[in-house]
Each structure stands twice: as structure tokens, then as C-alpha cells.
Amino acid sequence: MSSNVIASPRSNSAQSPWYKRNKASHSSFEMFAWLFMRLSGVVLIVLIFGHLFVNLMLGQGIHAIDFGFVAGKWSSPFWQVWDLAMLWLAMLHGTNGVRTIINDYADRNGTRMTLKTILYIAAGVIIVLGTLVIFTFDPCPAGAVTDLPSFCPVP
């Protein structure tokens, strides 16, 4: 088995074993990031398991999902808050996870900076977009006729 062991990240880079990529930081950011992964992870299990159960297991499962299904859910503040919390926690948890992987495997400073810049821009766009969609959503858009939820006024 010993030949089958994957080396720890950053243990076999060109500079190893004297390798110090950064000066020691006095910030406690990494400790908060570590704690956040554990706390958000527990909350996300509840949020995502609930999300999957309601959307895939109940009723007709995935066949029931259309515009009317989403509109029906987001007409309730309960599901708006649920989905908003899920969006923010999942994106921050996922972004921090990918940040850790980039830090582990991208050896060159420039590569690391580039990948993390792309990651942060993508995460920022998705979080802002998702938040706007949840709060500016109109369940009965003017001019639409198909797949509307049943509570929309008949045109």
C-alpha cells in the first residue's frame, strides 16, 4: 500500500522541503475560514437535504418542476429565505473549498493569483445574480401565458 499513497499537497514542490511559500500571517482569517467550513457545512446539510427532498422526492418529483413550481415556492418568504441562505452558504463554502485546492496545487504565485481572481469574480457574479433573482422575481410576469402558478390572475 505504501507505494499507493498520495503525497500531501505542497510536500513535493520544487522548493521542498525548505519551502515556505508565504511569510507567516498574523491574521486569524484562516482560522475563521476553517471554522466557517464546519458551521456552514452542518447548516447546508439541513438546507440541501430539505431542498432535494421537496424538489425530487415529493409529488411528481422532477416532473413537477417548471416555472409555476418555482413561482409557487418563492411566493412564500419561507422558501425565499431558505433558498437565499442556501445560495450564500453554499457559494461561500464552495468558494473557500476551491480556494484551498488552488492554494494546495498551484505552485506558481502568478497561477495562484490568476485562478483565485477568476474564482472570486465567478462567485461574486453568481451570488449577486442569485440574490437579485430571488428578490426581484415576479411570479405572474406581464404577457406570460404558459406554466404560470394557479394564483396568477387569468389574463
Partner: peptide
């Protein structure tokens, strides 16, 4: 896409 139109999303 729910913000674009019901047809686009569905």
C-alpha cells in the same frame, strides 16, 4: 432563467 420568461425556464 425564471427572471427571463416562464418559457425560457421551462
Amino acid at each position: 432563467l425564471v427572471r427571463v420568461s416562464p418559457e425560457a425556464y421551462t
